[in-house]
Nucleic acid binder design. Sequence first.
DNA 1: GCCAACGTTGGC
DNA 2: GCCAACGTTGGC
Length: 153
Amino acid sequence: MQYWLFKTEPDAFSIEDLASKPNQTEHWDGIRNYQARNFLRDEVKVGDKVFIYHSSCKDVGIAGVAEVVKAGYVDHTQFDPDSKYFDPKSSPDKPRWYMVDVKHQHTFKRVLSLKTIKQMGDIQDIGLVKKGHRLSIMPVTEKEWHSLYEAAK
DNA sequence: GCCAACGTTGGC
DNA sequence: GCCAACGTTGGC
């Protein structure tokens, strides 16, 4: 079992949106970054735990926890010309992009702010606090997960 | 909305 | 395969 952090812009899709979906489950589509894609396709597994991180908003930080309920499969939005995630260079026999399904588990009472995370002594290596952290899917170590969870709950 | 940092593209 | 130009990300 592994731990992850998924970024989302709450204006587009927030943890509240996830919690209100049928069965509190939704596919995590629209990832268009190769490194993140590799994680989704190869490493994110059913049962893995995921921090949902809100970016580009008023309350930047970790908003809650979800669980992976379906491992990597082809993101169909890449073939849909009407989708904003449409990729004309991708084809069904050679798909470029993948997604997973996640199920909402827990929304923290307060968002664990990026500022607080940066102040935590044992959270120094996570992609978030490094310069230019633009990866939308990133691994979290077990130690980091427990520290962040304790700080957030 | 600004702007720095980053990934991707495409000409050569 | 280099690298400049461009587009995007994301905190503030």
